[in-house]
Structure formats: structure tokens, C-alpha cells
Amino acid sequence: MLDRIKSHVTKWWKVEAQVIQMLTDGEVDFAVGPGGRMTVVKRQGAQVTFDYNQGIVHGDSWVIPRGAKNKKNAMEFIAWYAANPKRHAEFSRHIPYGPLNTKAFNHMSDAEKAELPTAPENLKRQLSSDSEWWGKNLVKMEERWNAWLLR
């Protein structure tokens, strides 16, 4: 599949801002890109639309380094934020990133839900990225990828 489209691809982007730029400038007609930013430019009136179909979902994690000085405060913050679906919902109103706490959707309108990648309707059409596998294979895959790109 990739082999077939390779020669038609204008740019294999690396920086997220780049792909949005290229879409809005009309540099490309079609792109794979980050949902959050897509939502934002769409809201701002850019002539783009997008769909989560076959999207890949990446999760971010809260991490406390071992031996952190403010471990207690950090734990308290996570408990305050992560355990509270209302706050998740509020967060997603400010930046269109999907909440991982599914109860958060109870506090949202349907229109709001439709924009978010982790909303049940969107989530079932997507894959989720296997961080463990990538952790093991990143170097190898990157090399394969580069070799393929340069060919």
C-alpha cells in the first residue's frame, strides 16, 4: 500500500505544525495528521475536514520520576485530576484531546463528543498504538522506515 502511494506523497512530515500548514496552504490535498490540531483549524474556519476512521490513538501518561522531590504533591494532583471525570471533560473543552476516563463523556454534549478521538463512537473505528511493542521495536522500525523512504 505504502509502496503504491509513495511517489505521490509530497512530504513525509515530521513536525505536527507542518502538516496543518501544508493543508491550509493548499500545498497538499489530503493528509494524515494530528486530530487535536485538525479540530482547532477546522473550528477556526479552515477549509479542511477530517475523520477518525483508521486513526491511531496514542495515550499520554502521567509520570513521576523515581525519587522525585514532590512525589506527594504530584500524587495528589493526579488523584485530584485523573480521578475526576468532570475535570477531564472540562480539559477537553479547552483543547480537543480525548479523555481516557470514559465517564467524562457523561458530562459532554453530543457535538462535543463527536470531536474527540476517545469518544466511544470514534474509538471503535481506530487502532490504539501498542507502546510496549514500539518500545521494543522503535529503533528497528525507524531504520526500516528510513531505508524504505530513501529507496
Binding site: 509513495k6 509530497t10 512530504k11 522503535l138 529503533v139 525507524e142 528510513n146 523512504l149
Partner: peptide, 20 residues
């Protein structure tokens, strides 16, 4: 474009993406 990767880009990739 796709095939115009220079050494600086490869090095940057190894450092920032792969921590290698």
C-alpha cells in the same frame, strides 16, 4: 522531499526520536 535526508537529519532523528 522524501529522499533528501542529510546526515544532520539522521543524527537529529537518532537523538530526538530514538535517544540513540
Amino acid at each position: 522531499g522524501r529522499t533528501d535526508m542529510m546526515m544532520g537529519q539522521l543524527i537529529e532523528l537518532e537523538v530526538s526520536q530514538l535517544l540513540n
